[in-house]
Simulated assay, not measured.
Amino acid sequence: MRTGVMILPEKRWAQSARLWQTVDELGYDSAWTYDHLSWRSLQDGAWFSTFPVLAAAAVVTHRMTLGTMVTSPNFRHPVTAAKDAVALDDISGGRFVLGIGAGSVGAGDSHVLTRQDLTASERASRFAEFVELTDRLLRSDVTTFTGEHFSAYEARMIPGCVQRPRLPLAIAAGGPRGLDLAARHGQAWVTTGPRNWAKGFTPEECLDAVTAQVTALREACSRHGRQFAEMDRIFVVTPPAGDFLSSPTAFLAQAEQYAKAGITHLVLHAPREQGVYAADPDILHRIADEVLADVRGL
């Protein structure tokens, strides 16, 4: 099992650069950041643009994978997102993963570009078209496409991705349509567990939900002739899943549970000083020193 760290883009680069470097030096496998314009309870605080932050991170790190968690159609267009992704793949030397999701209604930035409210079905359709066009753009030098939600006219992606045939896509999904999309287009799949956190869930219920999603993903891969074992299966840890950062021992125990459920990659939030995701500032060092090697062997 691999372990990644989510670093929120909320601090000036002079402050946050060292954190990205530290995560890389400690031996974590990946580092990610949210692709939002603002975010939930932090929407009135500092928040920087995702792709420039990742470009800077690519320059000061050397080995770990970098990615968006996740880019969405709420305020992105496939052509510009793909163009930025190609640049990041180049700057990072082929270490970039483009995470893509349907776009959360409650994240705080879903209506920045439009006041239009889409139904769940319309959002799913828009998401599918976003993924399909992005996939095509990243595989081709020139793409023309006309869809219901997005269009591209002789969109050029020259010189293309460093990673071939294109850089990896990590598809965030929990329902049948999204899991089917991940099976068709993704090199990785992303989940945070239950689809509707507002109902409230225990850590046990979260684990059960992820286990069921993994089973459904396996079935979707089988339908599309995909090798399930080749797909990275990423679980992004949030508070309802339990306190993964209380101690290295607790992290190892919870990692073992999710490995048994079929997860291959855990992503922890870097500790913040206060508020959401607040935790011991030294816990990432302690996990790396004490149990990271054991987790990698799961």
Rank of each mutant, 00 (worst) to 15 (best):
R195L: 14
H269N: 14
E230K: 09
L266R: 05
A152K: 12
V210I: 08
R156F: 00
A183C: 08
Q227H: 14
E256P: 10
H185G: 08
P176D: 08
M231K: 12
V237C: 09
Q213F: 04
R139C: 10
P203Y: 00
R184F: 02
L268Y: 04
L268G: 11
P194K: 05
L169N: 00
F228H: 10
A220C: 13
E230M: 10
P239V: 07
W197A: 09
D243A: 08
A152C: 12
A255Q: 12
V237M: 09
H265N: 13
F235M: 09
H185L: 13
V214I: 14
A259W: 10
Q163G: 11
E205Q: 15
F145M: 07
F145A: 06
T215S: 14
V210Q: 01
L181Q: 12
P203V: 02
L169I: 01
D243G: 11
C221N: 13
A250I: 07
E204V: 02
A172R: 03
E273A: 15
T211Q: 08
E256K: 14
L245P: 06
I171L: 04
A241D: 03
D243R: 04
T211P: 00
E256L: 05
F145D: 10
G175P: 04
G225K: 07
I171G: 09
A170E: 09
E219W: 08
H224C: 10
